[in-house]
Design a protein around this nucleic acid. Structure first.
Length: 262
DNA sequence: GCGACAG
DNA sequence: ATCTTGTCGC
């Protein structure tokens, strides 16, 4: 895949003020509504009638859903991408890049974004939607990792975070059953108008005995909050993390083990 | 000054 | 994110 907006490729040389200005620019460019070509209902296992033998086209198979995650070494980072169609792995790729920026809450994409784009430049497939490990619109300036990457690549994108960066759940989030979700709305510390639904706490898995925390899903680019939630629910594979993300996580670890041993 | 803070 | 053994419970 190509980087459609090179001007948004993270430059660690930027000052903090410049990075924050770039994030506002990215948020202004991002579209937090549905502007994609896939059918949410078709995400997940491909339906049997998609292969009724009427022709040899595979265009009617489910959408291509990509997961992205990273594993860190001392001075380098492995960025892995796994593309799924249903439960089939269509493509896997990765990049090993140098780390040039520390982790700063709110500026995560300036540390991880460049390396992630390196990996995308080696990807042959064009995913219908990409799941990133982190926030999208659930961000102080509405420009989390998923938004930054989605806009730079101009690809439908969403963020899946394991903890909440900002915003407030509209209801208790402690006793959700698998499949349930609670909206997250912007508070006064965010650029989004207070009350705006910027994402959802999504319970992907649950047990009777002990409680599992939900994941926090938000639009990155070209998907609405509701669609982002539905995509994640459709990608459940029996684990807390949606399958594309979980596979990318495992692949990144795998590559890291190989890379560190040479 | 204090608190909050994705990976 | 990462450093790490065993261990308790579906």
């Amino acid at each position: 895949m190509n980087v459609v907006h090179p001007e948004f490729r993270p430059d660690p040389e930027s000052s903090r003020d410049e990075m924050e200005a770039i994030q506002r620019d990215i948020a202004a460019t991002a579209r937090f509504g549905d502007d994609h070509g896939f059918d949410v209902a078709a995400v997940g296992a491909p339906s049997l009638d998609a292969f009724d033998g009427s022709d040899d086209s595979t265009a009617s198979a489910g959408p291509l859903v990509a997961g992205v995650d990273q594993a860190f070494l001392d001075e380098r980072v492995v960025s892995a991408i796994v593309v799924l169609r249903g439960d089939e792995v269509v493509e896997r790729t990765y990049a090993v890049s140098p780390l040039t920026f520390p982790y700063i809450p709110g500026l995560l994409s300036f540390r991880e974004g460049g390396p992630i784009l390196d990996a995308f430049e080696t990807l042959d497939a064009t995913p219908d939607v990409v799941l990133f490990d982190g926030s999208g619109r659930i961000h102080f300036r509405q420009a989390g990792l998923a938004t930054h990457m989605g806009v730079a690549l101009d690809v439908p994108a969403l963020g899946v975070a394991k903890s909440l960066l900002c915003g407030e759940p509209v209801a208790d989030t402690d006793r959700l059953d698998a499949g349930e979700s609670v909206a997250i709305r912007a508070n006064d510390r965010m650029d989004a108008p207070p009350g705006t639904v910027v994402g959802h706490a999504v319970q992907t898995r649950q047990f009777d005995s002990y409680r599992i925390n939900p994941v926090y899903v938000s639009p990155g680019h070209r998907v609405s909050a509701a669609t982002a939630r539905d995509v994640v629910l459709a990608c459940r594979g029996g684990y807390k993390l949606p399958e594309p993300t979980r596979r990318a996580d495992a692949y990144a670890d795998e590559v890291k083990a190989e890379v560190s041993g040479s």
